[in-house]
Amino acid sequence: MLLAVEGLHAHYQKSHVLDGVDLTVERGEIVALLGRNGSGRSTLLKAIMGLVVPSAGAVRLGGRDLAGLPAHRIARAGLAYVPEERLVFDNLSVEENLATGQQAGVADAPRWTLDEMYEFFPRLRERRDTKAGYLSGGEQQMLTICRSLLGNPRLIMIDEPTEGLAPKIVEAVTAVIRDIQRRGVGVLLVEQKMTIALKVAERVLIMGRGQIVFEGTPEALRDQPEMRRAWLEVG
């Protein structure tokens, strides 16, 4: 077991957003996390990363409990996080942005180089000296994924990477996510587009009311339209 989240709770002031979340991710596995807007998926990633302090529960990475540690210690333990808002450093060039992500990483994690990033996304190489603030949404997405990957994580959490991107770029991004997984990194992917989630993920989780309400293979979810109606579809 690479990542095991157990009974995780998180609050924003009085509102109880995570109400005992349990999930696991294996080495080299892509797990897709689905759910309606506002169901708490981003909060879950932030709570795992230590950006929102969990009020109870455990976050075990390779057996070691990280819950309650500051984000930089959690990152150094081998977790990487690509936020929904992308959060590129708009005052830095593309290459400087990538430099901020470079870390030694933990011993048993796959290693990544700057050149590999530029091979994933040649567009980033072309724009290496451009300030990240001038990049398109798609380029910013490529940049944040690469920035986090250069920390050589054991597991990477990616929040809605395809949101608002053109189909061509969606394809490039999903191809890279697959490559990441093939090298043995665990991937926890929050994805709004069901078709993509079902295509890339080995396992699918659905979040509803602050808990995991469904866990199964993409096929299992396909066969359960009532599940989709209850927890995913709008209206």
Binding site: L51, A71, A75, Y81, L92, T100, G101
Partner: peptide, 17 residues
């Protein structure tokens, strides 16, 4: 570089370790 990044988005810099 890290200082300039941290000035802009301290939380993200923390999440990068």
């Amino acid at each position: 570089i890290i200082v300039r990044a941290a000035v802009r988005r301290p939380e993200m810099v923390g999440a990068l370790g």
